[in-house]
């Protein structure tokens, strides 16, 4: 097991990252996807904090705020147009609209 118990903070961060990653990829609800992304990013900050990371300390946080805002804006537009948050349903409706 090596350092796994010694590195428990990193281990927690990694577990969070895995959960966020899966949520982002496999949930169909847009809001849940965004939550998954936020979890993934927070996990990385936790990892960095555990490492006493110094250089470029604030960068990921700024990026995360911006990307979350952008994703939410896209979701708002999609909801206004298709009245659902389910990305599969939205894709299907968009295809039908085109045809």
């Amino acid at each position: 097991m090596g350092n796994l118990f010694n590195n428990y903070e990193e281990a927690c961060a990694i577990i969070l990252f895995g959960i966020g990653f899966t949520t982002l990829l496999l949930h169909r609800n847009m809001i849940k996807k965004i939550i998954g992304f936020s979890m993934m990013d927070s996990a990385i900050y936790l990892f960095l904090a555990a490492k006493g990371y110094i250089a470029g300390r604030k960068a990921p946080i700024v990026v995360s705020v911006s990307v979350t805002a952008l994703m939410l804006a896209l979701t708002v537009r999609l909801y206004r147009r298709y009245h659902t948050l389910d990305i599969d349903e939205i894709t299907m409706q968009a295809r039908r609209e085109e045809a």
Binding site: N7, E10, I14
Partner: peptide
């Protein structure tokens, strides 16, 4: 999807945890 999600989540975490156990100690 549910099965896939669980499988993927577990495997991603497992692989990364192995990596963590080999990292410099905290």
């Amino acid at each position: 999807y549910a099965v896939l999600a669980v499988l993927m989540c577990v495997s991603v975490i497992a692989v990364l945890l192995t990596t963590v156990s080999n990292l410099p100690s905290f």
